[in-house]
């Protein structure tokens, strides 16, 4: 399985994301914002950081890159899975590939801590812990997205509506989450629960 790790100017979690994917058996490659065709990849990973300084709004400027254009056609062709972590989630929302938007935390501060979550995927619920690190991570939406939510905060750190920490699109081919699974992957001090998220992606890919 081949995964692309997207690096925009200002992305800064690509190294850990790539290492986590490789530990999970993916063949990986960095791609930059000018990439026009993603068809060779089974999975596209938008990793965390501050793309283009997160100026205007988090993820806004990244939206206007050839890479995001090529994501639209990637989705249209139903080629593979797209996953966005933190800034990647913000970009997917800004690009309207996922519903809703991410706005400034209720506490008006950057929050970096390990936080308890409920993972709810395909009917199995599980308590996990993952680190969060963001200033604009409060999820907001109108209407009902509950059937698409797979990750909820147990101690809401940012004011997200309905404690939403992560969700996928209606075809389960695009997923976004604010917590950083790649930071709970290699080190016993921060736990290994991040592997649960990578497992879901792998299982989804196997499902085809």
């Amino acid at each position: 399985m081949k995964a692309a790790v997207v690096v925009f100017l200002g992305t800064n979690c690509q190294v850990e994301t790539k290492a986590a994917l490789e530990a999970y058996g993916f063949e990986t490659k960095y791609v930059d914002s000018n990439t026009k065709n993603l068809d060779e990849f089974d999975c596209i990973f938008l990793s965390g950081g501050f793309s283009y300084g997160d100026y205007l709004r988090s993820g806004r400027i990244a939206k206007f890159t050839p890479l995001v254009e090529s994501l639209y056609s990637y989705v249209e062709k139903q080629r593979g899975v797209i996953a966005g972590i933190c800034n990647g989630f913000q970009i997917l929302c800004e690009a309207h590939l996922l519903p809703g938007a991410l706005i400034e935390n209720d506490c008006l501060k950057f929050v970096c801590k390990n936080t308890p979550l409920e993972l709810d995927f395909n009917g199995t619920k599980k308590k996990i812990n993952l680190p969060v690190a963001h200033r604009e991570g409060k999820y907001f939406y109108r209407g009902d997205v509950s059937e698409f939510v797979f990750l909820r905060y147990l101690k809401n750190p940012n004011g997200s509506k309905d404690n939403i920490a992560g969700l996928y699109d209606n075809k389960k081919r695009i997923m976004g989450l604010m917590p950083h699974p790649e930071r709970a992957f290699f080190n016993e001090n921060f736990g290994f629960d991040g592997r649960e998220i990578f497992k879901i992606i792998k299982d989804e890919l196997k499902r085809g």
Binding site: N12, E16, F110, V111, C112, A133, R183, F186, N187, N189
Partner: peptide, 25 residues
């Protein structure tokens, strides 16, 4: 310290205040 990203970069090994120092792998 919760306002500062102590985890970015993939080298951080311990959480702040779990020991007297910051540790990198």
């Amino acid at each position: 310290y919760e306002q500062w990203d102590y985890l970015v970069g993939g080298r951080s090994y311990v959480a702040p205040e779990s020991t007297g120092v910051g540790v990198l792998k």
